[in-house]
């Protein structure tokens, strides 16, 4: 019993453009609606700014822009997933987030090579349930602070 429970992974499902992505529930603190974002100047392009999250100033990044997808206007469905990694709390803007699924760990496969381009770096694996394909994102890569610095430098130079 305990073993099967341990091998199950709870994932939060969110949408970007036309794909469905997933992030382990233990990396998520909360899901918020998009409210006023204060732009922080001279940061990487995907950093949208900071919000007031119940008294804590929390940085927000756009996953669309992080994955090199075209930006979209925020809609009523847009959400901010507050993700936690080590001692960092960062909000990820997604098109919508409305599902939680359980998957068995062994059903997660490594990312297929063909999935392509930059996005592939941020993918930990994929899993299929019925006809739906979920892309598991690699939060460590998405929030890699080194990349933040490089992008930052480019921003200033350009």
């Amino acid at each position: 019993m305990a073993q099967t429970a341990a091998e199950d992974l709870k994932l939060i499902v969110f949408q970007l453009k036309d794909k469905e992505y997933a992030i382990p529930v233990n990396q998520v603190r909360s899901i918020e609606k998009v409210e006023h974002i204060t732009r922080v100047p001279r940061t990487a392009g995907f950093v949208k700014g900071v919000i007031n999250l119940r008294g804590v100033v929390t940085p927000i990044i756009s996953l669309r822009s992080r994955f090199n997808l075209e930006e979209a206007e925020y809609s009523d469905h847009s959400r901010v997933i507050i993700a936690v990694l080590d001692d960092m709390e960062v909000g990820l803007i997604v098109d919508s987030a409305n599902d939680v699924i359980d998957v068995a760990i062994e059903s997660i496969e490594p990312p297929p090579e063909v999935i392509g381009s930059e996005e592939a770096d941020f993918i930990k694996g994929v899993t299929k349930i019925e006809k739906r394909l979920f892309i598991l994102i690699n939060l460590e890569k998405v929030l890699n602070p080194d990349e933040l610095a490089i992008q930052d430098g480019q921003g200033i130079a350009g």
Binding site: R42, T43, V47, T58, P59, M88, E89, V90
Partner: peptide, 11 residues
């Protein structure tokens, strides 16, 4: 600004 955004210029 938190641990993610460090060293923002002039902020």
């Amino acid at each position: 600004l938190g641990n993610y955004l460090t060293n923002v210029f002039a902020i």
